[in-house]
Design a protein around this nucleic acid. Structure first.
Lengths: 359, 359
DNA sequence: GTCTGCTGCTGAAACGATTCAACCGCGGTG
DNA sequence: CACCGCGGTTGAATCGTTTCAGCAGCAGAC
């Protein structure tokens, strides 16, 4: 531990000192910062020079105190490690930056207490608004916030009533899209491998799969339920399937998430007799980074995360502009076709226009 | 878009209104909030009741303005999607929370402009201090911050001079640890598969590998250089190796990162003739989530991310307490042995005490 | 009854930026 | 010459909290 000659711990420079040094009134310095066009060029440059010289940095607390609200938007995510949220956060940051606002990220990590701490902190900071991907059922908490005038937009959560603005993604459409694609590739014996049905996303994706199968005569859907959405569970499911006779083997598999699909792929890679995609086509969900670089590149369903982030900020702005306005936006997911499901990649559709009607 | 009867946009309740309603002075309300022990229990409860009743939330801007600094610590990371940083962030948050402080996360995404925006914002907010994992060479920027009195701790970056407090991990030790383990398993023909040597981490890991081989007579090290640290590059390296005759094939491979190792594993899984770990032992680096659930669970080097996060906060506190004090902390990484390198998992050492001397 | 000490409470000052009514100076108009 | 208009500038008031010197009231000591 090195002890340096402690440089004088200079207090930050205030606007008053700048004014003094530049021989102008404090109001003029403030104008230079906030309404440069009101200040004569010569004086403006002089003030800017002094600001530079003294290393003045505006005290945001004082600005905020006077202005009544900040330029900060709070974003609380369930899992900062999940690419879905980081992509969304980045898009939200960009969109907010375009209006001169700033996004601060809080990570609740599925922990309600942690979430509460961030909500309180953001409220004390009088944030412009809150983007919240809530832990569990947020109703009471949200009502309190609402009552205190904190504008909140829900992210990745569908609310029954239209009491909050929200952005979410249509998982039913995603399941439909995946299975429709398998059917279009000529597959008829479809299997759905999913995690616990208690997870809404899983249930929705399955419903979408069922809908697609119902539209196609001669197609059947088998449901394989696993305990969790992990690679290991996927491998278990794959091992179980690979013991079957050729006759009972599905020729198309849709997994509720990419981890499951990668596990299935691992299990099947052990088998020489079965080839992907020729004998068995496979589609995952989420389009995680690993999907593209699997042994056989994995087809998957991608969520429009960037769009969701931008839209969340938009909805917040709308509600700030006209308090009381609410809007729910549900996005259709997108199919990404790769080697695990396309016998002929050239013909593979990039996006599926047919889905628009369901939106 | 539903338009609700706009509830009166009530201004937030101030401490003055609370005082009025509770028949006390503003100073007393402030004391209830900050020094409850100074207030008589009866009065304290009365004030708390009114606070609850009116839904009072302290205005942090005003507190901060008066107090001169906030209770917020800024953390700027290079990549919020990287588990290394999210784990570190979470540990930092926990440690900060123990002292009543709060960590706000900014994601620079390797973008210097973005980083600058966050630095400015945090400085305007007069944060307690900054934990920074800088983009590129930060020297000029840091000097400016230092001059303005913003206490900064560097994360995951070694500075030559001891001009800043910092936490980092010893990549040389990591490389040494990995290869020593391979040698202990009886392997002698070692290969190092690494990304561009321009990345410091890669170069350090390689140097560690060289040091371990040098200590063991009869051992040799072959270096395979790839363009990037990706699964695809790993697969390319694996394909290249698998064309070799048995004689020239390494029996132990150390990859500069887990992605490369997974790629190698993919390439070798195609080959029936070569088995992992019997014919070829494999060790990766970073211990990402996928390492444990690979076809053959991957041995890897784990960085003590939680410890680094906690320590970063500690260093910040130290420097705040006695300005001018600096400390650099370098952590030794940890070896995690899994199926890809252990012929006998029971004998596998969990941590390697031998390393302590190098620290 | 006076003095001392102590607890608990009060109320005004201070923090630093923004805002806004007032003011200044100057050129143009009638 | 008086007046107007106007761009540019001023400085006091304001935001909501914390801090702190000072005061009231009370108990105990003498």
């Amino acid at each position: 531990m090195a002890q340096f000659p402690s440089l004088p711990p200079r207090r930050p420079v205030s606007i008053k000192e700048v004014a003094l040094r530049a021989n102008v009134a404090v109001g003029t310095v403030s104008n230079v910062l906030n309404h440069p066009e009101r200040v004569a060029p010569a004086k403006r440059d002089a003030v800017l020079r002094v600001i530079e010289e003294l290393g003045f940095v505006r005290n945001d607390a004082a600005r905020q105190l006077r202005a009544g609200s900040s330029r900060t938007i709070g974003l609380i995510v369930l899992d900062a490690g999940n690419p879905f949220f980081t992509d969304l956060a980045r898009a939200a940051e960009d969109e907010a930056a375009r209006q001169g606002n700033l996004v601060m990220l809080g990570n609740s990590g599925h922990d309600a207490a942690r979430e509460a701490r961030y909500i309180d902190a953001f409220e004390e900071q009088r944030v412009l608004g809150l983007l919240l991907s809530p832990v569990g059922d947020p109703n009471e908490r949200l009502e309190v916030l609402r009552a205190r005038g904190v504008t909140t937009v829900l992210v990745d959560r569908l609310e029954d009533a239209d009491r909050y603005s929200s952005v979410a993604v249509d998982d039913v459409a995603g399941g439909y899209l995946a299975v429709r694609h398998l059917l279009e590739q000529g597959r008829r014996r479809i299997a759905f491998i999913g995690g616990p049905a208690s997870i809404r996303q899983v249930a929705d994706r399955r419903r979408g799969a069922e809908a697609a199968v119902a539209e196609c005569s001669g197609a059947s859907l088998e449901v394989v339920e696993q305990d969790a959405l992990t690679v290991l569970q996927g491998r278990a499911a794959g091992d179980q399937l690979s013991g079957r006779s050729r006759r009972l083997m599905p020729d198309g598999i849709f997994c509720a998430n990419d981890l499951l699909a990668l596990g299935v792929l691992q299990a099947l890679a052990m088998l020489r007799s079965l080839r992907v995609p020729d004998d068995l086509a496979l589609v995952g969900y989420d389009d995680i980074g690993f999907a593209a670089s699997a042994v056989v590149p994995l087809s998957s369903i991608r969520q429009p995360t960037e769009l969701m982030g931008r839209t969340a900020i938009e909805l917040l702005n709308e509600e700030l502009a006209s308090p009381g306005s609410r809007r729910q936006v549900i996005f259709p997911p997108e199919l990404v076709v790769r080697g695990s499901s396309a016998t002929d990649l050239d013909r593979a559709p990039e996006t599926d226009g047919l889905l628009t009607g369901r939106k």
